[in-house]
């Protein structure tokens, strides 16, 4: 009898794992199908659906396809995957469902870097990318160095405090840049960059962030089960054979490198790293073995859909950060007022 009950429970767990695997495969198949379908949506020659035949007839459309739509859709997929995956990693490592990738001074550093170029040299996309990536990473390194010198609390708390301090410094510097920016052109460019978008992506810029994005996703994916252990307290993680500080450092660095690479070309895209991990845990359960790849795939799908809406719905582009913020905030409220509500 006991053996029978034992087996039925094991069956439930196996069934749960099988269902999760099927869902992951389903999402993995859905992504390329939708990505291909959305290639036929855009604003040229008219807003909405572009008949496939017209790509053969019109050379300009072919150019738009290869130089704009394909890189843009790939960037949307990469950005969604990285931001959601990194958000998941941050939430697990900080054992806090309210943190996101921009926790360690990265986004404010990147925003400062981009604004510095805009104010100093005008709108130069390549230099904005380089500067945003450089200052974004310097946000991480500064947080790191400061945390090592702090004499208060454990390592993770020190990192959080250092991240808050570094973000505040970059925010002040950014406010100063906005104050001195030429108001009719530079200030608008800064505001637009900070709202996020994929409109100025080129194949070359996409390739420039590919190594960082792949590195980030591969490292995070390899740790997908052990991430569970890092959400426990460090002493427990140590007792089951982990080296918590080393493992957390590797994961935080990988997540931040990926995030910095993405926002250096896209600008700030909020809420994806916060809300998608919650959604993934609702669908796949708390075990990060399935929920982490789930978050990566749902994040990619989410930004693919948002970007398609952003570039198709109106004659002028909707900044994608604006869309993700609206959808993210409503999603957040929905999760909190659900019957089985609460953050997971």
């Amino acid at each position: 009898m006991m053996q029978k009950r034992h087996s039925s429970h094991e069956l439930a767990a196996t069934e749960r794992a099988r269902r999760n695997r099927l869902l992951l495969v389903g999402l993995l198949l859905l992504l390329p199908v939708l990505a291909c379908l959305f290639l036929f949506f855009g604003r040229y020659p008219q807003a909405g659906w572009t008949p496939p035949g017209s790509f053969w007839e019109e050379p300009l459309l072919r150019l738009i396809l290869t130089q704009i739509r394909i890189p843009r859709i790939l960037l949307a997929l990469m950005a969604g995957a990285v931001l959601a995956g990194s958000g998941f990693v941050f939430q697990m490592i900080f054992a806090n469902p309210l943190v996101e990738p921009n926790f360690l001074g990265v986004s404010q550093g990147a925003a400062f870097g981009a604004s510095l170029v805009i104010v100093g040299f005008g709108y130069a996309p390549v230099w904005i990318q380089v500067s945003a990536a450089g200052f974004g990473m310097s946000g991480l390194l500064l947080s790191w160095a400061l945390a090592r010198r702090f004499r208060f609390g454990g390592w993770i708390l020190r990192l959080v405090l250092a991240g808050i301090a570094v973000s505040a410094i970059f925010s002040s510097a950014l406010a100063f840049l906005k104050l001195v920016a030429e108001p009719t052109r530079d200030l608008q460019d800064i505001t637009f960059w900070m709202m996020g978008g994929f409109w100025n992506i080129t194949p070359a810029r996409l390739l420039s962030i590919l190594p960082a994005v792949l590195f980030s996703l591969v490292v995070v994916f390899c740790y997908r089960w052990r991430l569970n252990l890092l959400s426990l307290n460090d002493r427990t993680a140590h007792s089951v054979g982990m080296i918590p500080i080393r493992d957390k450092t590797i994961l935080l660095a990988a997540a931040t490198i990926g995030t910095t690479a993405v926002i250096s070309v896209s600008g700030l895209i909020g809420w994806v790293g916060l809300i998608i991990p919650h959604l993934a845990r609702r669908v796949f359960g708390a075990d990060s073995r399935h929920a982490l790849p789930g978050a990566i795939l749902i994040g990619a799908l989410f930004l693919l859909l948002c970007d398609t809406v952003a570039r198709t719905l109106f004659a002028s582009e909707i900044p994608i950060g604006l869309l993700t913020s609206i959808l993210g905030a409503f999603g957040f409220i929905f999760i909190l007022i659900q019957r089985r509500g609460g953050l997971r």
Binding site: A95, N96, N228, L232, S239, R281, A286, D287
Partner: peptide, 13 residues
């Protein structure tokens, strides 16, 4: 190790 107390922030089974 069986610690004295331990709390998870996530709803693991």
């Amino acid at each position: 190790l069986v610690p004295q107390e331990e709390q998870s922030q996530f709803a693991f089974s």
